[in-house]
């Protein structure tokens, strides 16, 4: 066996060993399959990222709505339908990558986009109807036959609570009262408490949901604190006073 060469193989720089590996053909098949897989994954990650950004913009626009349980005003509506058509395009573009076997394969990649989209969709639904969007209705909002997992649906709803908090506090600051719909029974705080109770009642929700639980609770409590503050001291406030939502204060701003 004099053919064995002594110099060490220099792993990256050296050409493949002189006799072509008998496994080359097999590995070339693997290569093309792995390449397809990586390409798909990249397309999905990119679409997911863009869907997330557009959903956030939609939510910002929706936060300008003041009237609960009424059609979205035209100015806002125009903006969000422009975002929506781009979102639809993005979903449709990756739909072929998310069929059959691959529907769950790239779940981690598409999930962030779907969650953010769920947040936007459920927020709009709430503003229009003062109802929580059902799973079925939410699924129907996703174009291209891409399936909505229960996880993504719930995680989107968790984030909805944060949007409702912002909406409530802005409503109180500008309108002097908690937004309530035209219908029977309760106001936004009633709804938030119901949502909280619903979330807390879920048994066996995953780790990601547990992580959002505390944030969700503190959002509800911020609104509770703000309502309290409004009742106790509200009349002393100058008109046009705007509560600082960004900071962790609970509306305990002294009157001037």
């Amino acid at each position: 066996m004099a053919g064995i060469k002594h110099p060490r193989p220099d792993d990256e720089t050296a050409e493949p060993p002189t006799p072509v590996s008998p496994f080359m053909a097999v590995f070339e098949t693997f290569r093309s399959e792995l390449d397809e897989h990586h390409d798909r994954r990249e397309r999905i990650v990119k679409a997911s990222r863009d869907i997330t950004a557009l959903s956030k913009k939609t939510i910002f626009s929706l936060q300008r709505v003041r009237q609960l349980q009424a059609p979205i005003p035209p100015a806002v509506s125009d903006e969000i339908s422009a975002y929506q058509s781009k979102i639809t395009e993005l979903f449709t573009s990756v739909a072929p990558d998310l069929q059959d076997l691959n529907a769950w394969r790239y779940q981690n990649q598409i999930s962030p986009g779907i969650q953010e989209y769920m947040e936007a969709v459920s927020f709009q639904h709430y503003l229009e109807t003062r109802r929580l969007i059902s799973y079925e209705a939410a699924q129907a909002k996703i174009p291209g036959g891409i399936s909505l997992t229960e996880d993504d649906y719930v995680l989107g709803l968790f984030d909805l609570v944060g949007e409702l908090m912002r909406f409530a506090i802005t409503g109180m600051a500008t309108g002097g009262a908690l937004p309530r719909g035209g219908g029977e029974g309760g106001d936004l705080l009633t709804d938030l408490r119901q949502l909280r109770a619903g979330f807390e009642g879920l048994d066996g929700a995953g780790k990601r949901a547990q992580g959002k639980m505390d944030v969700m609770r503190s959002c509800v409590e911020k609104v509770e604190g703000a309502v309290y503050g409004m009742i106790v001291r509200g009349r002393e406030r100058p008109k046009g006073w705007v509560m600082d939502v960004g900071e962790e204060r609970r509306g305990e701003v002294e009157s001037y």
Binding site: R131, L132, S134, T190
Partner: peptide
Amino acid sequence: KGMITPAIF
């Protein structure tokens, strides 16, 4: 009362 249909949860 409120926004949630019990069926959802």
